[in-house]
C-alpha cells in the first residue's frame, strides 16, 4: 500500500517534469483571451509544422509582471499594448526583429511602419489599432453622449450606470482629454487635476471594468461605458441599439503589438508565427473575428463592406487614427501615475 503510494507520487512528479521538458519544443504565445480566432494556432501548426501553445493574460500589467519576474523565460511571443512593448524593449526583454523573416510586412499601411513608439518596427509588430471612446445604449441614454464629460459628469439617467476602463493608462484618458492635456503627461499638476476630476466621477460609477463592460451594456446594468472601439463591437453584435462614438475631445491612438521575447529559444519560429499573422487572408480573418481594425492594408482592403456597415468604427482610416496622440511609455512618471491611480481607486 505504502509502496504503491510512493510509486504513484514518483510517477506523478516524473510526469510533471517530463511535461515541462516536452513543452520546450513549441512556441508559447501570450495574448488576451479571445483576442484571436480560436482555430488560428491549429491552422498555423498545420501549415508550418510548428507547435504553438496559447497562454492568456487579463491585462498588460499582468503579463509584464510575469515576464519581468521570469525574465521572459518560457514565452516566445507576447501581445501587449505599445507602451508596454516600449518598456519591454527598454528592459532588454524584447528581441530585435529580423525583417528578412517578416516579408509580409509589405502588406502594412506605410503609416503603421513609422509609429512613434517604434519607428521602423525594430522590436514590435502592430497587431491591431484603434481608438477609445464612448460605447452606449442608444435606446436608453436619452440624449446621445458626445463628450467625455457625459461620462465624467453623468446626468441623472446615467448615474450609477456607467463604467470606466480599469487599468492605469486608460482610466486616466477621459479626464486628461477632457481637461485638454496630453494622455502621456508627466506633469504633476496636470495629473493631480485629472485625479480630482476622476475621484468625483468615481462616486457616479457602477464599476471599473475592462473585461465585461460590453455584457453589462447588453444586460442593461450599464448604459454608457468607456470602451475600446473593437470591444464595443462585441456589444453591438449582441444588441443593435449599442453604439460607439469618439468623444469630441478626441481619443488616444492605441496600438497592440506583437513582441518576440529576448529569452525565446525559438526566435525563428516566433517570427514565422508573426509573419503568418501578417498574411492578408489571416490578418483579415483576425479583424473579422475580433472586430478590431488591423494595420494591414491588404487585409483591410479585403474586408466585407457589410461588416463595416454593421460596425462603423471598423471604417476609421489610418489618417483619422493618426490625428490622435499615441499612448507612450511613461518612463519615470510611471511611479506618479501608479500612485495617482491608487489614490483614485481607494478614495471613498
Amino acid at each position: 500500500m505504502q509502496k504503491q503510494f510512493f510509486g504513484a507520487a514518483v510517477a506523478v512528479v516524473l510526469a510533471c517534469v517530463a511535461g515541462a521538458a516536452s513543452a520546450q519544443d513549441k512556441i508559447v504565445i501570450s495574448n488576451w483571451d479571445a483576442y484571436m480566432p480560436p482555430e488560428l494556432l491549429a491552422n498555423f501548426t498545420k501549415e508550418t509544422g510548428i507547435q504553438a501553445e496559447l497562454s492568456v493574460h487579463a491585462t498588460n500589467e499582468e503579463i509584464m509582471g510575469k515576464v519581468t519576474a521570469s525574465g521572459g523565460k518560457g514565452y516566445d511571443v507576447l501581445f501587449v499594448s505599445s507602451p508596454f512593448a516600449e518598456a519591454l524593449h527598454k528592459l532588454g526583454l524584447a528581441a530585435e526583429l529580423d525583417h528578412a523573416k517578416l516579408p509580409n510586412l509589405k502588406n502594412f499601411y506605410p503609416e503603421a511602419m513609422q509609429l512613434p513608439h517604434d519607428p521602423g518596427l525594430k522590436f514590435s509588430v502592430p497587431y491591431s489599432w484603434g481608438t477609445t471612446g464612448l460605447c452606449y445604449r442608444s435606446d436608453k441614454v436619452g440624449t446621445e453622449p458626445t463628450s467625455w464629460n457625459d461620462l465624467l459628469k453623468p446626468n441623472d439617467t446615467l448615474k450609477g450606470k456607467t463604467t470606466m476602463l480599469a487599468t492605469d493608462r486608460w482610466l486616466m484618458v477621459p479626464a486628461l482629454l477632457s481637461l485638454g492635456y496630453s494622455i502621456n503627461t508627466p506633469k504633476e499638476d496636470e495629473v493631480a487635476k485629472a485625479k480630482d476630476l476622476l475621484i468625483e466621477t468615481k462616486k457616479t460609477l457602477l464599476a471599473y471594468d475592462d473585461t465585461t463592460f460590453y455584457s453589462k451594456l447588453v444586460s442593461g446594468e450599464a448604459l454608457l461605458v468607456e470602451a475600446w472601439d473593437g470591444w464595443c463591437n462585441y456589444g453591438i453584435a449582441e444588441n443593435k441599439d449599442i453604439k460607439y462614438a469618439i468623444a469630441k475631445e478626441g481619443s488616444d491612438m492605441w496600438v497592440d503589438a506583437m513582441v518576440v521575447t529576448a529569452a525565446s529559444e525559438h526566435k525563428d519560429a516566433a517570427q514565422a508565427f508573426i509573419n503568418y499573422i501578417l498574411r492578408p487572408e489571416v490578418h483579415r480573418w483576425v479583424a473579422e473575428n475580433i472586430l478590431y481594425k488591423v494595420p494591414n492594408k491588404a487585409a483591410m482592403d479585403g474586408l466585407d463592406p457589410a461588416l463595416i456597415k454593421q460596425y462603423p468604427n471598423l471604417g476609421i482610416t489610418p489618417a483619422e487614427l493618426l490625428k490622435f496622440e499615441q499612448m507612450r511609455d511613461l518612463g519615470d512618471a510611471q511611479k506618479l501615475w501608479s500612485k495617482t491611480v491608487t489614490e483614485i481607486t481607494s478614495s471613498n
Binding site: 510575469k66 468615481k202 471594468d209 481607494s346
Partner: peptide, 16 residues
C-alpha cells in the same frame, strides 16, 4: 475595482 483593500494593493504592486 472601486475598492482597494490591502490584498489588492499588494497584488497591484506585484502585477500592476
Amino acid at each position: 475595482g472601486k475598492r482597494t483593500m490591502l490584498g489588492n494593493l499588494i497584488y497591484d504592486q506585484f502585477l500592476t
